[in-house]
Design a protein around this nucleic acid. Structure first.
Lengths: 236, 236
DNA sequence: GGTAAGAACTGATTTGAATCATTTAAAAAA
DNA sequence: TTTTTTAAATGATTCAAATCAGTTCTTACC
């Protein structure tokens, strides 16, 4: 695989302007710059495990990461899938400082790791940065609560339809219109809380109805309106 | 009903020391003190509705409040039940400033309302206060994510058992060992995402098995170990 | 390339919980 | 108190989705 050219410093980072770090002054960015650790993970590598103590913040420069919990019965629940530009593990920066989930690279990944201490220094000196991070927490919280309602109240097909639409809008599509995210049927099950067989049957069914086009793990939405209707409780 | 004596000022508030406000200096508390509005709500009164714009922060001085969303199909989902000492509506203080849920008094309630502007002033001048509020967001976020897993992965009985244990530990018990929270079977259903009949049957079943004692709306846990086992997937 | 391991797929079966339809009991209101 | 409303209880039925038990297809690896 081709080597990805990492930015030498944070000032060159394309994610700077649309992240919580946009609130930082240039000397503050420099503080991050001198203390950050650039890391590379191969597909399938673990960034951290649930229960480990949080040593700092992961900034996803490139690649996708799944955050998941392994339950007592061995089942896996995917909490979130993060794409490039996103922060990982920031929940644990405050509070008890323990990761509540594990993180695994879904593809090759570049990460900038910022030590916890640096973040805390920045929070102490830059109120605007604090506010932005807090706003991020607040919006994540709304999202998490929306998601838990969505899980309780929706049927399996509704959940899956909504999940596919959500993944499409979050990760976008490639030139062939396929969603830029390859999950196994099992992973889709772990994400929506459904049995693998249920996922397979629903996907196949929607392929027959020309709502989706499937190609191995890749999914292409053909009829967005119908899928939206399904996610809102209408029969296909 | 007897009148509750409200504290004249925030310095006398019994919730001060164990809230995010403990980070405030005395002149900052005074700022809240002079701008807070003391409000009283009767059982069943609405504090605010989903979709309304957030004008400030509600500090629950006394009483219990349920936060819920009404879904398109008319179903109700209870997100959270807050007891005295807790803050309500702080998620909406940042972000888009719109309430994501409605709040209804479950019993007679005293609330101190702090205007949004005051909170923002305090966030700007006191970094420690910011940090505490952020930590609250972070822990709420973990909780919300735990809850969404719990909804996806648990069966109806597991959910209900866990909900009862949670309510008992959150709200405590009175002298007769009954949980200090009276919810209708419907409300328990809205809280756990189950049909009312399912709640009724499960409760009755556990009463027969001497796991619970029921008295109208009141619930008393007789066999905490068995209930815990059920919540972990063991048959009763 | 061939082999092993993991996904994907298929059909049959079971089961948990929602829904429907009433009845009974308890609160609220008149 | 009586009436009205709201909640609780119960039984019968339906249905969605999990589970079980296989087969076929991919992908990774020796």
């Amino acid at each position: 695989m081709e080597e990805h050219q990492l930015p030498i410093n944070c000032f060159d980072c394309k994610h700077l302007t649309d992240s919580v770090f946009c609130a930082l002054k240039s000397e503050e960015i420099d503080l991050i710059n001198t203390h950050k650790i650039i890391k590379f993970y191969k597909k399938g590598d673990i960034l951290f495990n649930e229960g480990e103590s949080v040593k700092g913040l992961h900034c996803l420069e490139m690649g996708k990461v799944k955050l998941y919990k392994t339950l007592e019965d061995g089942n896996v629940q995917i909490l979130r899938i993060s794409a490039s530009g996103e922060l990982i593990g920031y929940r644990g920066l405050l509070g008890n400082g323990i990761y509540i989930a594990s993180a695994e690279a879904l593809e090759d990944v570049n990460v900038c790791f910022i030590p916890k201490l640096i973040i805390h220094q920045l929070l102490a000196i830059n109120a605007n940065f604090s506010l932005r991070l807090m706003a991020k927490f607040a919006s994540d919280l709304s999202e998490a609560e929306e998601k838990s309602i969505f899980f309780v109240q929706k049927s399996s097909k509704e959940r899956l339809a909504e999940a596919i639409l959500m993944l499409e809008s979050t990760f976008g599509v490639n030139k062939d219109q396929y969603i830029q995210l390859n999950l196994t049927r099992q992973e889709l099950g772990a994400y929506t809380g459904l049995a693998t067989e249920t996922i397979i049957r629903a996907l196949k069914n929607w392929e027959d109805l020309a709502i989706l086009q499937l190609n191995k793990k890749k999914i292409r939405v053909l009829d967005r309106e119908k899928l939206k209707a399904i996610s809102n409780g209408n029969k296909p």
